[in-house]
């Protein structure tokens, strides 16, 4: 019986591999892919950032099910998530704690790259995509902050969006552009909501893919020696 099952299992695997080449992919990317010996804790921070980003996507989708993006109902819907919806408090707490930890881990990751000199030639573009990802992480935290429509969200966003004001000539226009009006208003909530749940996550996914593609193509940087054009 077991032998019979194994035969079917192998036949299915072979059927899939014949049509997708997945075996070679697994070999090249996982089981025969070698990285420098002795990689320490600091090299795991990129993977950890990706993990937290995934966690944020999952908890974010759960929150999206019950959250209502309107100034009249946003606060009530968040209270409902915290009190009425089963495990809603857990999901929202995880999403909030996740945002703090993602920023923390992404900054640590950047510092390790900075001090190990991994941004140097030929990894300039990897660094640029990484910087963009850091700024988008800060942006997604900033836009998400307004969504609960509490006193904290409202006034923190008011103060923060006021910062470009002193720039000569264009300052007031930038403030208007961010807010979608003179002050924080229902349109601000709507545009922050669109940025927070669609635009920024989509761009971040694409950039993270480019970031990882470049790491795979260029290999992991070895801090012990400068890169040469010869390879090994």
């Amino acid at each position: 019986m077991n032998l019979w099952l194994k035969k079917i299992y192998l036949a299915v695997l072979e059927w899939i591999d014949y049509r997708t080449g997945v075996n070679d992919l697994i070999k090249d990317q996982l089981t025969e892919y070698r990285v420098p010996p002795k990689l320490n804790f600091w090299y795991s921070l990129g993977g950890l950032s990706l993990f937290i980003f995934g966690l944020q996507l999952v908890t974010g989708v759960f929150l999206l099910v019950y959250y209502v993006p309107s100034t009249d109902e946003a606060f009530e819907s968040v209270q409902r998530i915290m009190v009425d919806i089963p495990y809603g408090w857990m999901i929202r707490s995880a999403h909030a704690a996740g945002s703090h930890s993602m920023i923390f881990v992404v900054i640590l990751h950047m510092l390790s790259v900075l001090f190990m000199g991994s941004y140097k030639k030929p990894r300039e573009i990897t660094w640029l995509t990484g910087c963009a990802l850091l700024f988008l992480t800060l942006g997604i935290c900033f836009t998400g902050y307004l969504l609960p429509w509490s006193q904290l969200s409202f006034w923190a966003t008011t103060v923060a969006t006021n910062i470009p004001q002193p720039i000569p000539v264009v300052g007031p226009y930038i403030v208007r552009l961010i807010r979608g009006g003179e002050n924080i208003n229902p349109d601000t909530l709507n545009r922050f909501f669109a940025l927070h749940v669609v635009v920024i996550p989509a761009v971040m996914l694409a950039l993270a893919a480019a970031h990882m593609y470049l790491i795979r193509v260029l290999g992991i940087s070895d801090p012990k020696k400068p890169d040469t054009d010869s390879g090994e």
Binding site: R34, P36, S44, G47, L48, I52, P122, G219, G231, E232
Partner: peptide, 28 residues
Amino acid sequence: MYKKTKYLNGMLFYPTFVVSDLIVIFAF
């Protein structure tokens, strides 16, 4: 194009590095 170092004596990405990654993730 830049020729990357192959690290023929390096550690295997799977399972060695994936497991050390997982340790960090679970500690987190």
